[in-house]
């Protein structure tokens, strides 16, 4: 083969002609995937599905996948987003079906639209989380949430690989309440009913809307804050699921970040 000469692109890659935004879920056991694990799974899935993904140029070409605020390792999600650069226009529904078939069960494609207008990052400033707290009674959770919401600022410490960071949970918390999913949420695992002593497992459900800050406030941080303000300490690990991401409206609801693309695409 001809050797690469200076000034030549090492790997002349076709340009990006279309971008598709994909909403996907991270479910069940695969909630233990880290963001890097998710990214690798997608890189392989686009190849298996023969999605005409664009690549960066150079000696180490990488598929053009752009990620938005990944749910932490251990958290499930019904609302993760990735934007895929393509070298050929495709029907987003075909792409969604092919990609879903190529991903391991538990990484499930929910929606795909052709990207238009503003970037995804500009359409997301908050997340709604649903957290199952096995062994916690709803009344105790309600009292703890009241205490937390009554504060102006509640800082918790998180240990990260790069050191300790202080995070103001209260400042990022838009809403928090006892109770299940709101309208429009995808169904999640069946939850044991709130029990009485001796009448089966107790499991309170918390719904929290959290503004996206840096560093991001995670469900674990909210639980840490409930421990600080009210001594609430679930006896078993909580299970968190991100139900939605989007722009906060004045009522504290989240607008679908793919909504305006869909209107444009289908209009």
């Amino acid at each position: 083969m001809a050797r690469v000469r200076p000034g030549e692109a090492a790997n002349p890659a076709p340009p990006t002609v279309q971008r598709v935004r994909v909403r996907f879920a991270k479910r069940g056991r695969l909630r233990f995937l880290s963001h890097r694990d998710v990214a690798r799974s997608f890189e392989r899935a686009v190849r298996r599905a023969a999605v005409p993904v664009a690549h960066s140029h150079g000696f180490s070409p990488h598929p053009r996948l752009s990620w938005i605020g990944a749910a932490p390792t251990g958290s499930a999600s019904e609302a993760e987003y990735v934007e895929i650069g393509l070298t050929r226009p495709v029907d987003p529904a075909d792409l969604a079906a092919a990609l879903d078939a190529a991903l391991p069960a538990g990484l499930d494609v929910l929606d795909a639209v052709v990207a238009e207008g503003k970037g995804l990052a500009d359409r997301i400033d908050a997340s709604r989380w649903r957290v199952e707290l096995p062994g916690v009674r709803s009344a105790d959770l309600a009292a703890a949430l009241d205490a937390l919401l009554a504060t102006d600022s509640l800082v918790v410490e998180r240990v990260t690989p790069s050191g300790r960071r202080n995070i103001d949970v209260r400042a990022a918390l838009v809403r928090a309440e006892v109770g299940g999913a709101g309208p429009g949420d995808a169904p999640v695992d069946t939850v044991p009913p709130d029990g009485h002593p001796g009448a089966g497992p107790t499991c309170a459900i918390m719904t929290a809307v959290v503004r996206q800050t840096t560093p991001a406030v995670r469900p674990d941080d909210v639980l840490g804050a409930l421990d600080v303000v009210a001594g609430l300490r679930p006896p078993a690990p909580a299970k968190a699921t991100r139900m939605a991401q989007g722009l906060l409206d004045h009522r504290g609801a989240l607008a679908d970040p793919l909504g305006s693309d869909r209107v444009t695409t289908r209009g």
Binding site: F32, S34, T73, G74, P104, A236, P237
Partner: peptide
């Protein structure tokens, strides 16, 4: 499952690979 949130790289124990 309840042990997994407490260990490093829990996904290595869940199976379900392609």
């Amino acid at each position: 499952e309840p042990l997994l949130p407490r260990v490093s790289k829990p996904v290595q124990y869940v199976g379900g690979e392609l």
